[in-house]
């Protein structure tokens, strides 16, 4: 476990896996889209709107999956002070927030024609909205402090507290009466979805998971670069010492490198 937490090992692993992740994402995503939009039949009661399920449900799963991942990384960063865990948590937040927002938007676009409303304040929809706010709160918090370490401490604490919301989202439809129907896939007596509809759903879920890991690898890599830049700028400042201004010049140049482009 700790071995993989070393940035150099992570980067090497990410390099090796990247082509595979891209291949899996493109193949499952392409097949899933084809099956979902062309091959799969309309539903007996919801007609063609069932096709919204093939993105709505995977985005909901990803919203929860990313949150659990972010909270685990947050806990690891709080307890063991792994810098990579903190970086992974920060890299996961925008992906999870995007999937949660997409889940709410596509759900709204599905709810209007089928339920007769864009939005209701039932337990499932409200807890999903809280999930989005937890992501946004985390992202605001980690960037709110000048000292990145304090930011990640506060953010990790929020991520951990918010984990309570994950089972609430999942079981809201069983614990309370809601407008949203109960679970169709992850249920005790097996999925209540016809195989012709379950296939595109599962393929899209695999594709979205692959997409998440691709974005994670990219964002972790650029965050590692940013931290290296910060460290170099600091060492550059300390090295001057002989009265020249090269240190601060170096800092400014490094700091503004991207601005001119």
């Amino acid at each position: 476990m700790h071995r993989f937490a070393k940035p150099s090992v992570f980067l090497k692993l990410a390099d090796t896996l990247m082509p595979w992740m891209i291949a899996i994402t493109v193949i499952t995503g392409g097949t899933g889209l084809y099956l979902g939009l062309f091959w799969s039949p309309a539903d007996y009661q919801q007609g063609d709107t069932v096709r919204i399920m093939y993105i709505h449900v995977p985005t909901a799963w990803m919203g929860l999956f990313c949150y659990v991942g972010m909270a685990i990384c947050g806990a690891m960063s709080l307890i063991w002070k792994h810098p990579l865990a903190d970086i992974a948590a920060r890299a996961t937040a925008p992906v999870g927030a995007m999937f949660t927002a997409l889940c709410l938007i596509t759900g709204s676009l599905w709810g209007e024609p089928m339920w007769g409303t864009w939005w209701v304040w039932d337990a499932r929809l409200t807890s999903m909205l809280i999930l989005l706010f937890l992501y946004l709160g985390y992202m605001a918090l980690v960037n709110a402090f000048d000292d990145p370490e304090r930011g990640s401490k506060a953010g990790s604490a929020l991520a951990l507290v918010g984990v309570v919301n994950v089972p609430i989202v999942k079981f809201s439809v069983d614990w309370w009466n809601t407008l949203h129907q109960p679970a169709s896939v992850a249920r005790m007596d097996g999925p209540s979805i016809d195989p012709s509809m379950l296939w595109p759903l599962m393929l899209m879920a695999v594709a979205f998971t692959g997409y998440y890991f691709i974005i994670l690898a990219i964002r972790v890599r650029s965050e590692l670069n940013e931290r290296r830049i910060r460290a170099l700028q600091l060492s550059g400042l300390f090295e001057q010492g002989d009265g020249t201004t090269s240190g601060s010049a170096l800092y400014d140049q490094g700091h503004n490198a991207g601005a001119g482009k």
Binding site: P41, D43, V50, W115, T117, Q181, S192, S196
Partner: peptide, 18 residues
């Protein structure tokens, strides 16, 4: 003032339902 539909969690093609 408002009537909303609450559907079940079963999804199947029309032929299967028939």
């Amino acid at each position: 003032r408002e009537v909303l539909a609450k559907h079940d969690e079963n999804y199947m093609p029309r032929e299967v339902a028939d």
